[in-house]
Design a binder for these strands. Structure first.
Lengths: 335, 335
DNA sequence: TGCCATCGTCGATGCGCTTCGACGGACTGT
DNA sequence: ACAGTCCGTCGAAGCGCATCGACGATGGCA
């Protein structure tokens, strides 16, 4: 292993000088800098992470807690993770992956063994048991999602309320008078994941203000569940002309089932989906969507984390405005 | 921060004794052990990861390199990652996430700054530029996938050759005489990802030995590409009755397109898919599949890594036997 | 010319832990 | 009763780095 001493010897300077060249915390003469940098390169020197962490109390590691349920929004989670790693690396940090399954204890562990400098937590529930612990932790924490009482924690998320409204507004503007929301699986509501509730609120509010008949129904992602869901919705209101789908997993089944019923999209029924943009084009009919900006949320989360690490102590809540992209799955209802 | 000294003081012993209680590397009297463990619990002590790494040259961190292309097998990657984190935690290790994008240099960095104790690398290509570097690294390395020259590296993967054969054998046994393989997108072949080639070899060999007419065609995952692909295959052989799909992303589009053409599954055409089992039931017709055992591969990869860390130095190549599950998408062709 | 400030560099110290050698006491066999 | 063992514990050293105070050299100004 090559240490800072080796570099110092090779460059003919003191180890501390090498350290200062690397950190830039004191001024260094151009000549010395050149000498040191050359030795570093020649020897392939990389500071020992543990030693650095011990001496400086900084690990240059961000911990990310992800849900690893595979039932749902896998693509979204993956996209988020990808963007977070990339953003973290751009700030010279690495990403440590934790799972929600380990619960609050894992957070405690990471914090008190100084494994990471900050925590990012996905899939936050309304009354998440991890929140009180996170608040007590005195590490920078950024939540993806907004709990009921974020008290001093930073949060970032899509503005799901606005997203719900945007979907309704789009359909209403096209002239639809009766629409339905196909929501996440009942399990999501049961867990109290806040985005589901927030989306629903936006949906309901907008339906009211646009004077549109609206119902909603959670839906599991099996083909049978989708089919049953459609049965119910169509039975309840045969004049239904618009569907808002806040559950990317059911999309393939839903579209295929609609066609099976002889309902054409968008001629007979319009569909607005809430899903990552990349998913919009993978269907026979390109879907009008409100994008889930996983990538941007990931980047923002890292950016907020870095701000905290840089000393910006005031927590912030950032809600990203929804972006609706019109494609081929929505049209005016037939008269 | 609570240190080992605090614990030692609280328990009335020397710090080294506390260390030995924790590591179990020397025998400790029951009384002392009880005393120390109580103090640890009471104080909520967790060893400082950096200090530990510095002193022991072990980080208890495994680095995992994932591809973050979102175009493809996202679910598989995610499932793998999930299983790897879980397995790693079960061995008291954490998981650090790296991306393939960072290239070989990142591996070098991780190794020489002692950030992790071992490397697991996904999405290995036949002539992967990272392989020579990994060999030189003298860290334990486990590859997911098998390159042309693994020379001393451990590998684990599904036996794709056998998987290709299994698909053909299943269709041949049902009586199909003309089948086609819809493969991964051309980009995958271009990259030289070895599983694609291996699957194809198994497919071809089995077709020959079962005396079945067989063609194959890579296919991008857009709906248009799928449609064009089917056009070609059906034009080339109108008697085609069996499809092997080694590209989970095209499944929704493919099934929907088949129905659109009036081809019923399995009455008119049988479909065998290579994909995670969880995906098999999400379609209108439950799919006969050869499972991609991402979860098991993840667990095995971690297990192999731990063996290496425990001193087992001989590299091994583990190819997991394919498991074909018959569901509703395959049947005998009509006479 | 002499004094003080500034710049660039150095040496020493300590971060929290693991590990090695040492040491006292209890026990064994004779 | 004594040497030889083994067990349980301790103290010290050192892992590789960041950081602080100190110090010589240089340059500006009076």
């Amino acid at each position: 292993m090559v240490t800072i001493n080796d570099v110092a010897t090779a460059a003919g300077v003191a180890p501390s000088t090498v350290s200062y060249v690397i950190s830039g915390k004191r001024s260094i003469s151009p000549k010395t800098r050149r000498l040191v940098e050359e030795s570093i390169r020649k020897l392939g020197y990389h500071p020992h992470a543990g030693a650095r962490a011990l001496a400086s109390s900084k690990t240059n590691v961000l911990a990310l807690v992800v849900p690893l349920r595979t039932d749902l929004n896998v693509a979204v989670v993956m996209e988020f993770v990808a963007s977070a790693v990339t953003a973290a690396r751009a700030h010279d940090h690495d990403l440590l992956l934790l799972t929600k399954d380990e619960g609050p204890a894992a957070l405690q562990r990471v914090a008190s063994s100084a494994i990471a400098d900050a925590l990012m937590v996905m899939d936050v529930e309304a009354a998440d048991p991890r929140v009180p612990m996170l608040i007590a932790l005195d590490l920078p924490v950024v939540l993806i999602g907004v709990p009921d009482h974020p008290a001093g924690l930073s949060c970032v998320d899509l503005d799901f309320t606005a997203a719900g409204s945007a979907c309704v507004a789009h359909l209403a503007d096209l002239g639809h008078r009766s629409i339905a929301l196909i929501g996440p699986s009942p399990a999501v509501y049961r867990r109290g994941t806040s985005y589901a509730t927030r989306f629903l609120r936006g949906f309901d509010d907008a339906a009211k203000s646009h004077d549109v008949r609206a119902t909603n129904r959670p839906c599991a992602h099996s083909y049978e569940a989708v089919s049953a869901c459609l049965d119910e919705l169509l039975a309840a209101d045969p004049d239904l002309t618009g569907l808002v789908v806040h559950n990317e997993a059911v999309l393939p089944g839903l579209l295929s089932d609609l066609r099976h019923r002889g309902l054409r999209v968008p001629e007979d029924i319009s569909v607005v989906a809430v899903c990552p943009d990349t998913m919009a084009e993978q269907h026979p009919v390109a879907l009008t969507t409100v994008a889930i900006p996983a990538e941007e949320v990931g980047a923002q989360a890292v950016e907020m984390t870095m701000r905290r690490l840089a000393g910006h102590t005031t927590p912030e809540v950032r809600l990203l405005g929804p972006r609706l992209t019109r494609r081929d799955s929505t049209a005016a209802p037939r008269a």
